[in-house]
Design a protein around this nucleic acid. Sequence first.
DNA 1: CCCCTTATGCTCGTCGTGAGCATAAATGGT
DNA 2: ACCATTTATGCTCACGACGAGCATAAGGGG
Lengths: 298, 298
Amino acid sequence: MSSRRIAVSLDAVVLAVTDETPRVLVTEVPGEPPGLPSGPLDVDDDATLERGLRRYVWEQTGLELGYVEQLYTFGDRDRAPDASTVRRLSVGYLALTGETTPTPGTRWLDVHDLLPWEDHRDGAPAILDEVQDALTTWADGHEDRQQRRALTFGPPWDGIRALERYELLYGAGLVAERFHDDHQDPPALPKSTAMRGDHRRILATAVGRIRGKLTYRPVIFELVTEPFTLLELQRTVEALSGVGLHKQNFRRLVLGSGLVEGTGETRSAGTGRPAQLFHYRPEVQLERPRPGLGQPYR
Amino acid sequence: MSSRRIAVSLDAVVLAVTDETPRVLVTEVPGEPPGLPSGPLDVDDDATLERGLRRYVWEQTGLELGYVEQLYTFGDRDRAPDASTVRRLSVGYLALTGETTPTPGTRWLDVHDLLPWEDHRDGAPAILDEVQDALTTWADGHEDRQQRRALTFGPPWDGIRALERYELLYGAGLVAERFHDDHQDPPALPKSTAMRGDHRRILATAVGRIRGKLTYRPVIFELVTEPFTLLELQRTVEALSGVGLHKQNFRRLVLGSGLVEGTGETRSAGTGRPAQLFHYRPEVQLERPRPGLGQPYR
DNA sequence: CCCCTTATGCTCGTCGTGAGCATAAATGGT
DNA sequence: ACCATTTATGCTCACGACGAGCATAAGGGG
């Protein structure tokens, strides 16, 4: 087997939700766009890829990860710098955690600043029109492009296709990352925060993945602090899924799912009737085949 | 970045369905268990990982792949040979195709010979009892093991958890691969065909993935030859999903899904009323958010 | 005590799904 | 020609899940 000039990096998309906002943990380097916590696979010391990843996140952000899941391995030669001297592979991971105070050099960014077209909690966001217009221009006269645009940006909107959307925007030259190597002035782009390398692509992969997983695995409970009210749970789901939900139906669904159990307690949030507090029931996994929050249920 | 002693291999799980049997394409080397088509990433010539994969499958089996999807990257140090001199990563892919005549040195194996506990088309297979017994013994007195067993092997049976099941069996020492390095006599195991290296693990990943994907993407049409009858389509789904389906309901579902369109023609299969022939309607992807075959719908 | 706000309970109509019964259209045998 | 058998296809029924709202409960602040 060829073993020359391959470098493998481990990259973590660490997600949390606070103040009804989905956030991703990034490291800051002066003069560079924010990046994901990441580092090269230590061939000798990291017995598993995941172990190495946990180590980097710990070293770079002081965070001890809980839930971790591999996302995808990126290895396109032409989307990495230095392609002529080293072949870079990047193994992306998704991690879920409660938000913590960032250590120096790290920060939590609003995911919707990075992928603003993904936030549909109050209907389609304003920036989506801008994006659609730009894509329409881009697709003009190209049957296949029009089709890809219709498929990824809908209607109907499909939250799960976050990666396809980012890739389409990248291909259409509508995100700043596309122009980093060229050092040329990028044309006017829909406003969104760029990331280092192709980290935003990994983020988009993570967003799509978590949206899918929410429906059939109880991963949401990695993100809420116990005990929680049903509204807190709902807002957390909405922040990640990017769509607004019907309150009473969400209640019905969650209560009927066996996912949670009320503590007798209630908590008052200033105004309004105090809400009952709940905690997660891990036993649900033994009782039901795919415990999750089901389909979008607007 | 460290670039010493890393070797990346690309491994393909090429699936086809013929005679209502799911099959996987393997290469045969005298004196060794069958293996997946695979080879090392060519750092210079393969611009993308997928391109390299297609090249290997072509070189080793003469097959030109259509649908290809990345599965997972395996990199545990302790599950690869030669761990002390080279760190091996393996990027697994799933490919779907119609079955072809194998070239010399290659063969199509019945997936259910490799993962016999996965075939529930006629109810739970006999071997499952054997597996369950062995797992019960293994889990005896270990709360956590009993729980993992219940979670992965049910009831209820969840076809999607094929990888978790294989991993559990591996961990419990119930598959032959576990003992390759030790050169010790493996204890009596439930009978199943082993594969080279950890290729059977990659296969299990592929089986779980395709089962999930069937429900929300029209991938099944990569596997049937057009035109097809609805029963052929159903048998193909059943072969992959590993469960039997209700004929009339399958019909209703498929017809109502917009996935297919009848050609006026019919085809007689010897005995019985001739069946109408259908072909896939790719436009469905533009009309519906997640065109697929939905939940199990027994 | 009235108003505002959030929590919670409940109802309705619709639609998707699991299970069968019933009919249609071939084939092969007598 | 008729019948038994086999596969295809049509249709019904009961039930539960889901989308949408209306209504009530329980707090806080004037």
